[in-house]
Amino acid sequence: MEFINQPVPEGEEAPWRLPSTRKAGMICLILTESALFSIFVVAFVFYMGKSLNPPYPSQIMEPPWLASASLIGSSFTIMIAEWFLKRNRTFGFNIWWIITVLMGAYFLGFTAYEWHDLIY
């Protein structure tokens, strides 16, 4: 193959390392998510206190403690799952991964319930 036989300039023998695809992919995903949510946050800030008629949010909304906890907690459980995966321990991964899925599902379900409650 021609690429191999060509003369090599000095100092080009250094090992060739590139960032891992996983890290790069994750950073991109986070960037995307933050772009998405920055718009929601801007809209939220823009409309704060601008409700035309009651009931106002403070009167009917309560902080969803449990759902928030499960959302934030799920980022830790997925880390544990990943730890198992890296060591090729499929069983441990499965357990923690399913826990993560359940916590996420709980959060989504609760959000849906909240919306339903607000509208009807």
């Binding site: 991109c28 960037l31 995307t32 998510e33 772009a35 998405l36 949510f37 718009i39 929601f40 809209a43």
Partner: peptide, 14 residues
């Protein structure tokens, strides 16, 4: 794309 498309998605969700 990854900086500009999500805002569109966000306002479409709204």
């Amino acid at each position: 794309v990854i900086i500009a498309m999500p805002p569109l998605a966000a306002c479409q969700i709204m």
